[in-house]
Design a protein around this nucleic acid. Structure first.
Lengths: 350, 350
DNA sequence: TATCTGTGCTCGAACCTACAG
DNA sequence: ACTGTAGGTTCGAGCACAGAT
């Protein structure tokens, strides 16, 4: 071994990474002993173990994960298929998954899918399973319910927020509970009814929120105003918000997420309608900055951390004990956070 | 649960994934021929090739990436070390990296580092290199300049937005150009000076923005007001914003990012100071929702897409042709987007 | 002669079992 | 109770060479 500092700056190219055999040679032991040390077996004398460890340190030995995976048949990698990581919810779920995976000694192979076409998702899944993963988390993929969709090879799959058909084990935020809480909160303040600014129709989460809003109104005997769909952006919130702002009978709006609510706030402001004096607004998500909107937003807080944790837990359970796929979906409860954007309706004029 | 469809229906748990040999057996050829087909060699008769391909389809054959990596010495995986994916900038950079990597046939092994300690970063890097990556992208890690920091093993590294010491090839947004543009824009509107609501002091990007702001004021002969530091949140923007709002001599503020600006907007609103009539506010990032703040925010748009693309390009260049590490940092230009939050200062009172 | 295709072998790096000092 | 040796395992890549057409 003629050396060359591989370490920091220099990285002298062509020296192949040290193998067990190199460590063994340097420590003056057999590679078998190196293996025993690497795998933390007990039957190695402390003095020998120390010698091997120091040789590892000197050479900068790292075990070859490919060879390891080959023999063990386990990669210690979880695949994650996600859409738009730019969306707070997905990003936070991803972060939580990352944390949980790391704690369990797994790393993440992440694929961000561009568009929600079946082909794109299929390809992403293919890429991951073809790659080297022990399990798969699919975040909010509304494609999963398509009958044609399948996951090749027996890789365990867990779906976060989005498997209406329950074809896979899933972990879901209780969208219905959150939407119901928001709607009831507004009704409870005395509003005659609550309008809904819905998320995209192809989003399962959005549909569930809308359905719960509808049900809550029905249950309270309140009239059900027409439902407006947007995508998840502030832009759409503004666009649709302008129409809502123009209707004097609108006194309370439940937006399907905080960004929509933000656009709505701007539209209302421009139309000269005060929040919450004239119109109450509630959102969904509780983004960190929602408390700093004008006015601070009443919203439903999602526990992304818990969703991520549960996903990894379920996946690892399946990986470690295949077949133990408890099928019941895990449901994570959200929480209504009341701030300044909701209040009783203005005194009726007639 | 002794069975039940795992995935697309079949995939009975304990069947080990089909190997080349299985395909060979089914197709009635040798595994050598299967290998030739798998690697797209020319010397296989079309009819035979088709037979093999169909056998692959029937069995759902996917080549074992571990074995492949072992022989080829290449994993086709890039590692990404990132902080808080919840931050828009990082999320967008990550998404762009993902896109670029996918195009090149690489997948991403992502580690989200919790806290910016040297230990945490070291561990993340260790985890990835110990795992199986051909290269490493480190996003905005202000730890890299610490003298002790090193990347083990000869894995190529590229740093996105944050290698002050230039110890690694890097791709950077031109923070200085952006901050200068924002500051000059405000001065150009007639403001006597511009205050700065800075990002965290340990952020290299934040420091560069502050330095450029400072320099732009100096160059224009404007007085340099005291610099206030926050973290990147709307919360801190609000906290510090309240102090700024209380000072009548503040007529223009350049915030180090859009979230800080959002908090500032709220503080100004609460203090009864109108934006932009009384105070002008500019941000940095151009979040998708920045156009829907009240008022729509003038800000500096970062081209995260380009940053991500360049990172992958540089990394692949190093991987494919080691030693060719063109050291000059790649710089990506940002762009000032003028909206409604900036205007000339109020008429001087004396 | 040239083009397929099969056989049989080695290599990569680690793990594991068994057995012997 | 340690440690070494020896051999077989994982799966695919890729070589040399022999038959077949």
């Amino acid at each position: 071994m003629q050396q060359g500092p591989t370490a920091d700056g220099t990285a002298r190219g062509r020296t192949r990474p040290p193998s067990q055999a190199d460590v063994a040679a340097l420590a003056g032991v057999s590679s078998q002993t190196v293996s025993r040390v690497a795998n933390n077996r007990s039957n190695v004398e402390p003095e020998t173990r120390e010698r091997v460890l120091s040789a590892m340190r000197v050479l900068g030995y790292q075990r070859n994960s490919a060879a390891r995976a080959l023999t063990l048949g386990r990669f210690h990698v979880l695949g994650v298929v996600t859409f738009d990581v730019t969306a707070q919810g997905n990003a936070r779920t991803l972060a939580a998954i990352s944390r949980a995976a790391q704690r369990a000694g797994y790393s993440l192979n992440v694929v961000c899918v561009e568009d929600q076409t079946e082909r794109a998702v299929q390809q992403a899944v293919r890429q991951l399973t073809d790659q080297a993963v022990d399990g798969l988390v699919v975040i909010e993929a509304q494609i999963l319910d398509r009958p044609g969709f399948s996951v090749t090879s027996g890789v365990p799959v867990v779906v976060a927020d989005g498997d209406p058909e329950r074809r896979f084990p899933s972990v879901d935020t209780d969208q219905a509970a959150g939407a119901t809480a928001a709607t009831r909160h507004l009704l409870g303040l005395g509003h005659r009814t609550v309008w809904h600014l819905g998320g995209p129709q192809d989003s399962y989460a959005a549909r569930r929120r809308a359905a719960a809003w509808h049900a809550a109104l029905k249950a309270a005997g309140a009239p059900v105003p027409p439902l407006r769909y947007g995508d998840w952006t502030a832009e759409d919130g503004y666009r649709i918000g302008r129409e809502l702002a123009a209707r004097p009978d609108v006194t309370a709006v439940f937006a399907a997420n905080d960004h929509l609510a933000l656009g709505l706030l701007r539209a209302l402001h421009e139309a000269g309608r005060r929040v919450p004096e004239d119109v109450s607004v509630a959102g969904f998500d509780d983004l960190p900055e929602a408390a700093y909107y004008l006015p601070p937003l009443t919203t439903v807080r999602q526990d992304f951390e818990e969703v991520g944790r549960q996903c990894v837990a379920r996946l690892l359970a399946q990986i470690e004990a295949p077949g133990t796929a408890g099928d019941a979906p895990v449901v994570v409860a959200p929480e209504l956070v009341v701030r300044a954007s909701t209040a009783p309706p203005p005194a009726p004029r007639g």
